[in-house]
Design a protein around this nucleic acid. Structure first.
Length: 932
DNA sequence: GAGTTCACG
DNA sequence: GACGTACGTGAACTCA
């Protein structure tokens, strides 16, 4: 059969996207063995194509094509920006498989068609209409109801899964009208999946009823006042425009401009070599065999390629070339990049700013990269460096587009749910964009990919990752900015220097993503990355931007009081020492103590200095007044310098609030770390220190609410080590330290003394840290043998703890990592070393699953929190490892406590079923001291 | 920049 | 038998 498409021809049009999604959801998440590339949807897609080919062998099909969607932005989005806005983002492991389904179609030698700006449905409509006009037949292989408007006059649909064909009567069954009125019914009924509004309260049944009564939609809308039901009548009158818009949205474009004709779609025999080569590349053994048989050729041997070692990724072969980066200077130049980004569906993004504090830093320029080596920098507010003006000119440099124009063009891409934005530490860039009202989503973050896979092995900064995984040293920033007082901000870097530096960052980020992302599955931390790391980025960005109000006057008053007390103490100290010296110098304190006064103290190894730490001074305090005074002075000095003084410098002048920065990938265990300033170590243990929390206040008319997990690490220990007595105690709400003491020392709970309880508490904590006799002895200030006796008794009483410790150490030795209950991996490379390092590593390995699981739990709570409190006028401000601090409008405190507590207590569900329930304590007040 | 000390969980 | 010794952080300070 060949020649022009016409009478007697039969065209099959396969809805490619429908095939892909069916394949994706029908199969488990298979991955290619050699490199972990997700491949399940491709496998299912190929299976469905093969079944299709087999099913039509000897049939009357003369022409065939698989039609795909391309990009997500279509003419319908221009008509209605909410079109398909409710769609979930494409699953992470599906995205890389999309291009492979095109390759697969071509490997089957089937025509493969798509068109930018149009949906597959429009192409199908156009081709079906063309086939009909030429006097041929057309079968659309899909069950998508949006295609039903095309049925009739030689066009029919076939649901390949159910092998059921749908004709005019079938459409009537579904819509209550024949195909020519389907659009009218859909326009009225709307579609929640595609977010087509329709007429509120009217479904398919009612819509069909109305259309059948009035003939068509135009007649119905024209004569809406004749509708008998008053509510329905009003709805149609009120929403007439919306209904017409809906009709335009659901009506398929039968005139899609196409660069091919029906004749190009003629059925072709598959080329066995090409097809089998593709299948071998995908490592589909069973399917290869089956297809080889069907084609009567020999199946290729597919080698069982061993996965490459995880720490030896392939180094990107495109060399780095800083001269090749593009300087985007105007809208035309940027548009080229935007088009390419939309075509790809992903882009690496990096921002250059005037500083490191995202609250005050200004956007200076944006770099983009879509392929290794292909990157650009869009400078926006670089200052002209041409003049000799010593103070720098404020005139803008040549070759820049207006910031507003750039953002206007780029924002739709940054916010487009179908374009993945890749960054290194995206929280930073997201905050910069958030300042400008832009919400960047969806995202991937190479720093977090690295963290999820390699926590404990190395840090996750871009320079380190580039060296390690790309074998490339990034252009250093120092020579560009200078150091010290003469340092300049990035907007003063000349463009010829700024372009290579900035663009390279995006290039590196993209290459890291290409290197690291496929390994995620292989390392087995996809869930960790997708549920514990990446979703935290917008949550933390919002918390950091919120900040917490800090009252400068309170801090200032405290500073003065501390200064006075310190001065008094200094006089006493000089008196006791008999001379003046620098109280802040540990070395000089050591000299006074151990040389002038001749007290007993140990020299410290490396530099021969005396150690004057708090516990040594504490011991000496019984012998002399001097150490006590030093301790008191140090406490005040600490409080003043680190808190009451430094904290004031962190109050943002715009917001009057302190905005900390959380590192997501700082702590190896999964904990967050807080910096600039650290708000996770605000004093509480001493009464004087605790008062600093009075400076952390709620805004007028609001309240601070603190919720903290009670004994979360011990509860997790009880679960992981499976200790029945501890689990029972938590279930009964018994004081856990008292219970431990009672079990160990055979004292009934009623006869418990604070001293015994204190010792048990120390042991409980010691266990979490990987207890040793020496450590416990020092902590409790008891002889080492006695401490060891306690530990022995503890293990005897709770043998599960010792088993847990031994098993965890053995696991770490064997695998080089340990895991939390949620699958987070913490690497412990030093466990293999000899000497004391191995001891450190072993204790860290024991602690990591406990501390890490607790960290996972609160991360999960934080990720769920925004949605859970959406209806409450409250904001999540701070996280302190097992505590969340909120600011809430007065009157809504209890609603917030109920909602937040619910999220926190059930945060492990449904992934982990803890044997021990998690309990959350709550407090509220005008300041943080009261709330705690 | 290393080392010490101390604030928190 | 000796090694060293409780887990995880960040910041300020001194001193070379």
């Amino acid at each position: 059969m060949s020649g022009k498409f016409g009478k007697g021809c039969h065209l099959h049009l396969i809805d490619g996207s429908a095939f892909i999604f069916r394949a994706y959801h029908a199969l488990p998440p298979l991955t290619r063995k050699s490199d972990g590339l997700p491949i399940g949807a491709v496998a299912g897609f190929c299976n469905m194509l093969q079944r299709y080919v087999e099913g039509n062998a000897g049939g009357d099909v003369t022409h065939v094509a698989v039609i795909f969607d391309k990009g997500s932005h279509t003419f319908r989005n221009d008509m209605y920006d909410q079109y398909k806005a409710n769609r979930d983002a494409m699953p992470e492991d599906l995205r890389p498989q999309i291009p492979l389904t095109r390759t697969a179609t071509q490997a089957f030698n089937i025509a493969c068609k798509e068109k930018e700006g149009f949906e597959a449905d429009d192409i199908i409509a156009t081709l079906a209409v063309q086939a009909r006009a030429a006097g041929g037949r057309c079968t659309i292989i899909s069950s998508d109801k949006d295609l039903m408007q095309l049925v009739g006059d030689g066009v029919e649909m076939l649901d390949a899964m159910k092998n059921k064909s749908i004709d005019r009567d079938g459409v009537f069954e579904k819509f209550g009208v024949f195909p020519d009125r389907v659009v009218d019914v859909q326009a009225l009924a709307g579609d929640s999946v595609d977010n087509v509004p329709g007429a509120p309260g009217i479904g398919i049944k009612t819509a069909a009823l109305l259309i059948n009564e009035f003939g068509d939609l135009d007649a119905l809308l024209a004569r809406a006042d004749e509708i008998k039901q008053p509510k329905r009548r009003q709805t149609l009158i009120d929403h007439a425009d919306q209904i017409r818009l809906s009709r335009d949205l659901v009506r398929l474009d039968e005139n899609t401009p196409l660069d091919f004709t029906l004749d190009d779609l003629e059925v072709r025999e598959p080329d066995p070599d090409r097809l089998l080569e593709f299948l071998a590349e995908m490592e589909f053994r069973t399917l290869s065999k089956r297809i080889a048989e069907a084609l009567h050729v020999e199946a290729p041997v597919i080698e069982d390629k061993a996965p490459a070692p995880a720490d030896m990724p392939e180094i990107e072969s495109v060399p780095f070339n800083a001269d090749a980066y593009e300087h985007v200077r105007d809208a035309a130049g940027l548009q080229v990049w935007i088009d390419r980004i939309r075509e790809r569906g992903y882009v690496a993004v990096d921002t250059e700013t005037t500083g490191l504090d995202e609250m005050t830093a200004e956007l200076v320029g944006i770099s983009l990269c879509i392929e290794a080596g292909q990157a650009c920098y869009i400078p926006l507010i670089h200052k002209d460096s041409g003049t000799d003006d010593l103070f720098g000119s404020d005139a803008l440099a040549e070759g820049q587009m207006p910031l507003e124009q750039c953002l206007q063009m780029l924002t739709p891409v940054l916010e487009d749910p179908s374009v993945l934005k890749i960054g290194q530490n995206m929280k930073y860039d997201a905050k910069i964009f958030a300042q400008l009202g832009i919400t960047v989503a969806p995202i991937d973050d190479t720093m977090l990919l690295s963290y999820a896979m390699h926590a404990g092995l190395h840090n996750h900064g871009m320079d380190a990752l580039s060296e390690r995984y790309l074998g490339h040293t990034p252009i250093p920033i120092k020579p560009l900015l200078g150091t010290g007082k003469s340092a300049i901000t990035f907007d003063r870097v000349p463009l010829d220097k700024a372009v290579p530096y900035a663009a390279e960052d995006a290039d590196i980020t993209l290459r890291l993503w290409q290197t690291l992302k496929p390994q995620l599955h292989r390392v087995g931390v996809t869930k960790v990355y997708e549920t514990l790391e990446r979703p935290l980025v917008p949550v933390l960005a919002a918390m950091e931007r919120s900040g917490i109000k800090v009252d400068r006057d309170t801090l200032s008053r405290m500073s003065n009081a501390f200064a006075q007390k310190m001065a008094g103490l200094e006089d006493e100290i000089y008196e006791l020492a008999g001379r003046k010296f620098n109280v802040g110098s540990p070395a000089q304190v050591g000299e006074v103590l151990f040389e002038d006064m001749g007290l007993e103290g140990s020299k410290k190894g490396t530099n021969g200095k005396y150690s004057t730490g708090a516990d040594i001074l504490e011991d000496l305090a019984t012998l002399h007044d001097f150490p006590r005074r030093i301790l008191d002075w140090r406490q005040l000095s600490k409080l003043k310098s680190t808190y009451t003084d430094a904290l004031q410098d962190h109050i943002n002048p715009e917001t009057g609030r302190v905005h900390t920065c959380y590192s997501i990938a700082g702590a190896s265990t999964g904990r967050l770390a807080s910096t600039d300033p650290n708000l996770q170590n605000i004093p509480i243990r001493s009464e004087e220190g605790r008062r600093i929390r009075e400076a952390f206040v709620a805004e007028q008319g609001k309240t601070l609410v603190a919720l903290d997990y009670s004994q979360i690490e011990l509860r997790i220990l009880a679960h992981i080590a499976d200790i029945p007595e501890l689990k029972q105690a938590f279930a009964d709400g018994i004081d856990i330290h008292a219970l431990t003491a009672s079990e160990m020392f055979n004292v009934s709970l009623n006869d418990m003394t604070p001293e015994i309880r204190r010792q048990a508490k120390a042991i409980n904590f010691g266990v979490i840290y990987g207890i040793s006799g020496f450590g416990l002895a020092r902590n409790l200030r008891i002889p080492r043998a006695e401490a060891q006796g306690f530990i022995d008794r503890y293990f005897e009483r709770f043998p599960g703890i010792r088993t847990y410790m031994d098993d965890t150490k053995a696991f770490a030795k064997e695998h080089g990592f340990v895991q939390t209950l949620f699958g987070r991996k913490i690497h412990t490379p030093e466990i293999a070393s000899k000497g004391p390092r191995a001891g450190f590593a072993a204790r860290a390995a024991i602690n990591a699953p406990i501390q890490g699981t607790a960290a996972d739990v609160i991360r999960r709570a934080m990720i769920r929190m925004p949605a859970a409190i959406a209806d409450i006028p409250a904001t999540m401000l701070l996280q302190v490892h097992d505590e969340l601090l909120f600011e809430v409008e007065a009157g809504s405190e209890d609603a917030l406590i109920d909602a937040a507590r619910d999220v926190m207590e059930n945060a492990a569900d449904p992934v982990v079923k803890l044997d021990v329930k998690l309990t959350v304590d709550a407090g509220k007040g005008a300041n943080w001291a009261e709330a705690h």
